[in-house]
Simulated assay, not measured.
Amino acid sequence: MPVVELHLIEGYGEEDKRRLGHALTDAVRFVVPAAPEGVVVMIHEMAPDAYFRGRTTKTPAPALPDPAEVVRRYLAAMEARDLDTARAMQGDGFLMQFPGTGPMTELSDLVAWAAPRYRFVTKTYDGFDAMPGAADAAVVYCYGTLSGEWLDGSAFSGIRFIDRFELVAGRITRQDVWNDMAEVRGRT
């Protein structure tokens, strides 16, 4: 039974500690074949005046937002065409790539690219997977199916998709999209 002990300066909320417990459990299970209930995570909190580094007390940094929730809010804003809200979730150097495109950096470019392809698209999500990425990045995959309307007014649904996002400091810096839209459109 793996046991993980974590010491934190007081100040993190219950949700932050729950996320830490889940993440540490998952990290252990990535290497050790243990059931979730077989991994023990103990979080010890200490008062800020009981922790010193460099002869001074420290306060905890705020927790980063849940990257999967950031991606969910971003995709909801994009679906609603609330580009200002979506843009506010992007980080420095934001880059996106969709099937058949080169890299794009502006949401207006994406809207222009989509305009001659379909009237609208909605996503039905089967899941979101979040994990640490390289350096300071978090990686989120979401997957499911696309529904919407072609330019001629006919409906489509059940088209597979997967999106991969990178987030740094809680902001989206990259989005890569794969889907079967061209494959399905070629058969209709």
Rank of each mutant, 00 (worst) to 15 (best):
K58F: 08
A63F: 10
D66L: 04
D66R: 05
E69P: 04
E69F: 04
V70P: 11
V70A: 11
V71E: 08
R72P: 10
Y74E: 12
A77K: 12
M78G: 12
A80V: 05
D82M: 09
L83G: 02
D84C: 00
T85L: 08
A88N: 01
M89T: 09
Q90K: 07
Q90I: 00
Q90F: 00
G91D: 00
G91M: 01
D92T: 13
D92R: 11
F94P: 06
F94L: 03
M96L: 04
F98P: 01
P99Y: 09
G100P: 08
T101G: 01
G102K: 13
G102E: 15
P103Y: 02
T105D: 11
T105L: 03
E106S: 07
E106F: 07
S108R: 15
D109F: 00
A112S: 15
A114R: 14
A114G: 03
A115V: 10
P116C: 09
R117V: 08
F120P: 05
V121I: 01
V121P: 00
V121R: 07
K123I: 02
K123T: 05
G127Y: 05
G127A: 06
F128N: 05
D129S: 03
P132A: 11
G133F: 02
A134H: 09
A135S: 15
A135I: 08
A135K: 13
D136S: 01
A137K: 13
V140H: 03
V140W: 00
Y143L: 07
G144E: 11
G144Y: 08
S147C: 04
E149D: 02
D152Q: 14
A155P: 11
A155Y: 08
S157D: 14
G158R: 14
G158W: 12
I159M: 14
I162N: 03
I162E: 09
D163A: 02
R164H: 03
R164V: 05
F165W: 04
E166T: 14
V168D: 03
I172F: 01
I172T: 10
I172R: 09
T173L: 03
Q175M: 12
W178V: 06
W178T: 09
D180M: 08
A182G: 00
A182T: 06
